[in-house]
Write a protein that binds this DNA or RNA. Structure first.
Lengths: 306, 306
DNA sequence: TCAACCATTTGTCCTAGACAATTTGTGAGT
DNA sequence: ACTCACAAATTGTCTAGGACAAATGGTTGA
């Protein structure tokens, strides 16, 4: 229970650094032993105290790891080398709306909440929900994620952006009042996956297509998903994955525990990394695939959209 | 990188048990050493494999710890003793609305989404937002939490309940359109605290009181909160804590890093556990305290509510 | 009733080595 | 050029028991 005294003279204790960087205590200690970085001071009790500058650098390294670089390379690099990598641009999927997106990114970077909010509603009214989600929101989320990993945006900007999107989707959804519909689909994410935004996007698209969604929010253990599916008598369970972490294993486990007739649909960025198809699971790496998936279900169950 | 093979023959590896129970690996190992429980098998490599029954028992212990029992007592108990405690009712704060709440709890337990949703809106219209939040929502959340800790509710019911509440608050808030107001308050939680619901409740109460809220959502690192406070020029930062975990330490850190004029307000169930006042931090264990806090700010800054 | 004090309880951090999952590199065979 | 197989390097997690400080409980005295 040795309590941290963070940001006191020396620096942050290891538990705080774990929280701030997402690198486990074990990893931090092993890096120190193997690569000679970081090099924390010690307090009177021999416990590590990390200098704020080193924590910054650890964060930078973590961001680069998320972009695919391996620790061994990164930890061998000096500050200038790291910065050089940090500014490398990743090539971007071509989109018809690219010039427009630049304008939106500027709003995100300048924290112009009101303008962003207004732009969201205006554009949605103009394009309709489906096109707005696919051509604007999804690419924009990708851009924000990229910009974050390049340290052009902070967590603050990313949260502000997410909150505005979430607010918008929930407002829109509350006005569409899905009374009922078919199929009935349970929307959630597995434990460890905390992004709700993908679920809200899918929910809004589904409501338009006359699906009856049951939104459960993120972080459901598999056995609870199974119980929920039985109680709510859903036709399918739809999961969202923002990273590939544990997606395959989780889908296999879920498919095994869920009754056969209940479908398993999986979408989100993390699904793109799955190579082989999974038996009994419908993978939807792109939004377009949602419609195919729905159409297939309706044919197999002999029901037409209203 | 030894990967878990969950639901394999022997049992769960320590990392999975940590994820399922929320007990750290260190704690699990220390309990084994000190109390002789749990008693995991070992795989070929000498690594722990926890039997599912023991994981269940660990979960039960964890729930009881959340109700205030200490580990030493619980780990000395046998199965029947644990079950006896598990069924003990916690006495409940007297509230004028108690009989009504029983009806609501029944809706939660029977997963009657539509009825719950309608009941929410009807009651809010009847009582007004402030009374609805304080006398209905807050006690109801407490009841749901209790019921969960007594294993009468599963995670599914708890998530469903949360989603309905969140939907309701966001709908209401979107219709109140806070254009501006004073003071300007940043709403967020610290890293590790993932409950947004408390923030939404506070936001709705604040909007009524002519505060201009900046909702950032959960899980912000402290240095990003400081940056956000500067950029958005807020008058105060309001944090929500669902458990006391790290609340004191986090508040001390934030207070130190934040410019003096910016207030720090802290609310939520976790704040009740803080004994000593923290210099420069306004603790709001009850909703009522929010009004005192606001009034004090307005006096000190010579501004009256509109 | 409240403060001060001491004893007990309890979780985190320390060390360094072992090991398995993953990724990378190499060579052989289409 | 391509894939497949296999070897080598990389990398994070797990193990052990001791040490220690924060939190809690209980007792005493004002």
């Amino acid at each position: 229970m040795s309590n941290e005294t963070p940001s006191s003279v020396g620096g942050l204790p290891i538990a705080s650094v774990e929280r701030e960087t997402g690198l486990s205590k074990d990893t931090l200690r092993v890096w120190e032993r193997r690569y000679g970085f970081p090099t924390p001071e010690r307090d009177a009790n021999g416990e590590r105290l990390y200098a704020p500058t080193q924590v910054q650098r650890l964060l930078q390294i973590k961001r680069l790891m998320d972009r695919g670089y391996r620790p061994g390379k990164l930890l061998a690099l000096d500050d200038t080398g790291l910065r050089a990598l940090d500014e490398t641009r990743t090539e971007r999927a071509a989109s018809a709306a690219v010039p427009q997106l630049d304008g939106w990114m500027h709003l995100v970077k300048t924290h112009d909440s009101d303008a962003l909010q207004r732009a969201f509603y205006r554009e949605m009214a103009k394009r309709g929900l489906a096109s707005f989600v696919q051509d604007i929101v999804a690419p924009l989320i990708a851009r924000v994620g990229e910009a974050w990993s390049r340290n052009e945006l902070g967590i603050f900007e990313e949260h502000l952006f997410s909150q505005h999107l979430e607010k918008m989707f929930r407002t829109v959804l509350s006005n569409m009042l899905p009374q009922q519909g078919s199929p009935c689909v349970l929307l959630t994410t597995l434990t460890g996956e905390e992004h709700t935004l993908g679920l809200l996007m899918v929910e809004s698209l589904m409501v338009v297509e006359d699906v009856y969604p049951v939104l459960l929010g993120p972080q459901m253990p598999i056995d609870e998903i199974v119980r929920a599916a039985q109680i709510k008598q859903v036709d399918a369970v739809c999961l969202s994955f923002s990273s590939a972490y544990l997606a395959t294993q989780g889908l296999l486990d879920l498919r095994r525990m869920l009754p056969g007739p209940v479908g398993v649909w999986a979408g989100g960025y993390g699904v793109k990394a799955i190579r082989k198809p999974i038996n009994g699971v419908c993978l939807m790496p792109e939004f377009q695939d949602l419609y195919d998936c729905l159409a297939r279900w309706r044919i197999e169950h002999g029901r037409q959209a209203a």
